[in-house]
Design a protein around this nucleic acid. Structure first.
Lengths: 234, 234
DNA sequence: TACCTGAGGGTTGCATGCAATCTGATGACT
DNA sequence: AGTCATCAGATTGCATGCAACCCTCAGGTA
């Protein structure tokens, strides 16, 4: 599957096979929120929207099903996976474990070049923060965490991390960032970078776990905001 | 996907949709070693072997590709994923992280009933050990680890753990068990059960990580034995 | 000999067609 | 009114057909 080098997001320029293109575009639509969790994805709709025949579309749905982004109900078609609040929390709990482990591995194994590349991403992200460029910030934030996981030098970890991240990105990178939260996130990232540069594995683990806990709080707010807007309170 | 309740292995009785049946049978063939890593899986071969048309077979291959069991090369078809030694070690490193985290969560969250169910599996496994029933031992061993992960009460963790386990089961549960190794594994399992019953999370984590390290040693031996038999030394 | 070329067979990627199943809406019956 | 049966339309699951692509291996050329 072709991925954008910087953000790990599906590449918009995909000009490969129909199945891959369809999977990429579908993934993008789900992550962007163009397809709301719980909504049906009919093959006819995809056919009209993408222009491919049903065969590659069905294969793409199987792929996304494996990624946990859609659920396929036999004889009834696919629906965008709708996480319960408990599942959202479980995903963040797992990501905290993976972040922490990746941090420790990265402190042991990352090359100086890799660490400085992460620092460069960090500085770009701070620039976006200063410019109040929310989209740029989200993209670089994601890129930093992926780079850190890659720096751990464990391909299984990298693969699993991407899989699980994608399931909750919708809630991580949505809505506005209140000023206080945004500033705190930047501070946490600075601590993370410091710990990485000092190669203090257990400190880095703590920073990352705390950072992920903050992330869960924001995601939970986003989740509940969305739930309210879908199911107005009586 | 239908799974056997006890072992988490694909159910042989699958009488569902052709795609699922094909995926289950293919997964089984890969895990059993009937399909050797690195070998091509041509759609025609599957067609003759399973009797389905190419459409569900292609969908099944996409599913297994998402699980990391096969790799699909554009316009060239699928091959059974062949792990390098480094990838095998990376998978075990990740599984150690997941085992450890699952152990701590299980100590906090598992119900007494769940723990006793694991104890029952353990005793069955010891019976298999005494009877030198290697297949029964492998199945129950796997079932115990899955039950422990389920007892952690984190669906994301459970899902990811199954995914990653499947990629290395071929090396975990193959070959004979030399007597000393087998006895040590049983001892480790007893310590694991004790720590779980006492709900000593950090102790359980240590036991599981050590157990996984032993598992890696055995898997590495199996890996190298296989590599030698495929590539006789010059 | 070494290298390029290009035709043949076989395989994959995708489109289309048909049967089985689901939806949901209408109408009959208690 | 409420429940159940039934039937038309729409959708999915799978089989099949065709074009594009890859690999192989003669045959020719330097």
């Amino acid at each position: 599957m072709q991925m954008d080098e910087l953000t790990g997001a599906p590449s918009v320029l995909a000009r490969g096979w129909a199945t891959d293109q369809a999977a990429d575009r579908l993934r993008e639509m789900i992550l962007d929120g163009a397809l709301v969790p719980g909504s049906r994805i009919s093959e006819r709709m995809l056919q009209e929207r993408f222009g491919f025949s049903r065969t590659p579309l069905r294969e793409a749905l199987k792929v996304l099903c494996g990624e946990g982004l859609v659920m396929i109900e036999p004889n009834r078609g696919a629906i965008v996976t709708r996480l319960s609040l408990g599942e959202l929390e479980a995903a963040f709990e797992l990501l905290a474990v993976l972040d922490g482990a990746a941090g420790e591995m990265a402190c042991r194994r990352a090359g100086d070049t890799q660490i400085e590349a992460i620092a460069a991403l960090h500085h770009d992200m701070v620039d976006c923060y200063r410019a109040r460029d929310l989209q740029g910030y989200f993209g670089l934030n994601k890129a930093i965490h992926l780079a850190l996981v890659d720096a751990a030098g464990n391909p299984s970890l990298a693969r699993i991390y991407r899989l699980e991240s994608a399931r909750v990105d919708r809630y991580r990178f949505a809505g506005n960032r209140a000023s206080a939260n945004w500033a705190r996130s930047i501070r946490q990232h600075e601590q993370i970078l410091d710990a990485l540069r000092a190669r203090q594995g257990s400190l880095l683990r703590e920073c990352l776990v705390a950072h992920r806990a903050s992330g869960l709080r924001l995601a939970r707010e986003q989740y509940e905001r969305e739930a309210r807007s879908l199911n107005p309170v009586p």
